[in-house]
């Protein structure tokens, strides 16, 4: 719990940091589309290449980037194992009841792992290089057409910004409560899964209560600073679409077109 890298901004200056958050959000969407369209080794390699280039350009250390993957490693392995065992392939190496290990299954799992890893890296790169405020400004700007149907775009964006702001606070608090419960003899490490999940209830209850109290106080503090919703509000940081953003847009478009063409004309392994 101490190692919270999800959603955290990495404060340095780089061409990627300077990009318009709207471009980065759209790029992420296009990128996700690309990794799921790509069905061949070359397609995924192109995706990985583009991401590697972005990471290098952002000057965020590799260790930081990989730490984001560490957080989902359990999910990745779990998904991969399930897929290997249940994938109905042709070249079967081993089988037992409903389980089988086939060549196709292994290739499929490898692709899946690669996709999840690329997905996680790309989305964490977004939060590493974009401050929560500009990220939410970006979301607000992209969703602003929805204001026509009275969708609370500003409120949604603010909620997102506060949620990101509160991640380190609440994770610190979780660690603190966990230690306090351990000091009183709570056991989080032994017993079966259900028992362990049950052991987390004494952490969850105080955590939720404290989050509610925090929300109450934060609300007062926001009101005291003249918050009155999105009306009349100005923005200190203005979003500007520059040359770098154009380059980013072209890169995203090229990648997606590339993998679509590869899929149509070359065909994939899966």
């Amino acid at each position: 719990m101490k190692d919270v890298s999800f959603g955290q901004y990495y404060p340095i200056d780089s061409p990627v940091h300077r990009l318009d958050p709207r471009l980065k959000l759209l790029f992420l969407i296009v990128y996700i589309a690309a990794i799921f369209v790509a069905d061949s080794f070359w397609g995924l390699l192109a995706c990985a290449g583009v991401l590697l280039f972005s990471v290098l350009l952002s000057r965020v250390p590799f260790g930081k980037v990989l730490r984001a993957v560490k957080g989902v490693i359990f999910l990745v392995i779990f998904t991969a194992v399930i897929n290997v065992l249940f994938y109905a392939g042709e070249t079967v190496y081993w089988s037992w009841g409903i389980f089988s290990v086939s060549k196709e299954g292994m290739v499929f799992s490898a692709f899946l792992i690669l996709r999840i890893v690329l997905l996680v890296i790309c989305s964490s790169l977004l939060t590493y290089t974009t401050t929560p405020v500009s990220l939410t400004d970006g979301v607000e700007s992209l969703l602003s057409p929805l204001k026509v149907i009275r969708f609370p775009v500003h409120e949604l964006a603010l909620i997102m910004s506060i949620a990101l702001r509160m991640i380190p606070v609440l994770s610190e608090e979780t660690a603190r409560i966990q230690n306090a419960q351990k000091a009183r003899g709570a056991d989080f490490e032994s017993g079966n899964l259900i028992k362990r999940i049950g052991a987390f209830i004494p952490i969850l209850v105080p955590l939720i209560l404290s989050a509610l109290r925090r929300a109450d106080e934060l609300g007062d503090a926001m009101e005291a600073r003249c918050y009155m919703g999105g009306k009349k509000r100005t923005k200190y940081k203005k979003l500007r679409f520059g040359w770098g953003d154009l380059a980013g847009a072209l890169l995203g478009a090229a990648l997606l077109t590339g993998v679509i063409l590869l899929r149509i004309y070359v065909g994939g392994v899966i």
Partner: peptide, 8 residues
């Protein structure tokens, strides 16, 4: 911890 709205 309960009065800052933004992360930066």
């Amino acid at each position: 911890d309960n009065q800052n709205v933004a992360s930066i």
